[in-house]
Write a protein that binds this DNA or RNA. Sequence first.
DNA 1: TCCTACTTGGGTAATTTGGGCG
DNA 2: ATTGTCCAAATTACCCAAGTAG
Lengths: 69, 69
Amino acid sequence: MVHARTPEAESLLTPAEVATMFRVDPKTVTRWAKAGKLTSIRTLGGHRRYRETEVRALLGGVPLQRSGQ
Amino acid sequence: MVHARTPEAESLLTPAEVATMFRVDPKTVTRWAKAGKLTSIRTLGGHRRYRETEVRALLGGVPLQRSGQ
DNA sequence: TCCTACTTGGGTAATTTGGGCG
DNA sequence: ATTGTCCAAATTACCCAAGTAG
């Protein structure tokens, strides 16, 4: 792949990852999304993905600076 | 208005790029294409390419923060 | 303590997704 | 890197019980 083209994709998190970060059950994260408390992006299969920036902000307002992983 | 005669076809994305944008496995993107949920263009070698415009639209179109869903 | 409203987690079944292999 | 297939893990949606807060 010679393209130096990175389709500006904001990093997304899976339900399990968000659940781990908040120390709750993945099901609870789903409820937050349904309640509109958390923005969710859907895969074409209906699964949810969450914006990392939003989650981090809710977790403590620590901005993401893109340093490795 | 930009160039009115740019020979480059509309930008196409590789399976890996689409997968990254949706935070799914490339294999999953292939499933979407086979299921007809995503338009796929075939290279002469049989690999798939996807329309960037379509992918972006499916990802939420407007990157503006949406409150509630 | 009791009561009420809200939040969370367990259970189930169906679907979607990811890992391993060729 | 992509394709294809099989199988396990994750996610979804639902209802219901347990926990939390005032």
